[in-house]
């Protein structure tokens, strides 16, 4: 292990002295591992990148406190684990992830869907939601993405509960048509999510 350990020791000692180059080298060595690791649990690239960003910024801010003999790989994990577990729990419990699995399960057409990634799915749904009118869009985002109840959404938007229900129904109908896939958003409409 001579080569790797010595280079890492050198980079740590430079990092402790504030070398941006050493920091950049450490990023180049470990960032792709960390991002790939985060993406195993948090399928949403943006969320996974946020964690990588927070972890590396923490590494830089705390550079003077790093012990010379530490393993950077271990350190990155310690710094990432809480963030990652929280984001993982959030994603698993999110309505949109359930929607994604439902979509993959129901959509058996050979040409589409089967190999779609959560990322792409999010992008497609988000771009369609952007096309809805403002009331429908917000009603859907609050109830289906942020997991608020109809009542909470109604008071937040200053509308009646019945209006929210109607707007969600209309919005989902339009989404279904826009996405052109029969089963998509079916579950969104009937399930109650935790939180």
């Amino acid at each position: 292990m001579h080569g790797k350990v010595d280079i890492e020791r050198m980079l740590i000692s430079q990092l402790k002295q504030g070398s941006e180059r050493a920091f950049s080298d450490l990023y180049n060595i470990y960032a792709h591992q960390l991002l790939a690791f985060c993406k195993r649990y948090v399928k949403d690239s943006e969320k996974a990148e946020e964690i990588v960003q927070d972890v590396f910024i923490a590494l830089w801010r705390n550079r003077e406190k790093i012990s010379q003999d530490t393993s950077i790989k271990g350190l990155l994990f310690v710094s990432a684990r809480r963030l990652l577990i929280n984001a993982w729990r959030k994603m698993v419990n999110s309505p949109i992830y359930e929607e994604f699995l439902a979509f993959k399960e129901k959509d058996t057409a050979p040409d589409a869907g089967a190999s779609i990634e959560f990322d792409e799915f999010l992008q497609i749904v988000n771009s369609e939601i952007d096309k809805l009118n403002k009331t429908q869009r917000n009603a859907i985002i609050y109830t289906r993405f942020k997991g608020l109840s109809i009542r909470e959404t109604a008071s937040l938007m200053g509308l009646s509960e019945q209006t929210i229900k109607n707007q969600v129904t209309l919005g989902l109908k339009q989404l279904r048509q826009a996405l052109g896939i029969n089963y998509i958003l079916f579950f969104m409409f009937f399930m109650n999510w935790p939180r």
Partner: peptide, 21 residues
């Protein structure tokens, strides 16, 4: 574990690096 990233994610890594730096 051994970790592999898609080409798309690899490209995003350098943008992320700029934001961090």
């Amino acid at each position: 574990g051994s970790f592999n990233l898609s080409q798309k994610d690899k490209e995003r890594l350098s943008q992320l690096k700029e934001r961090i730096m």
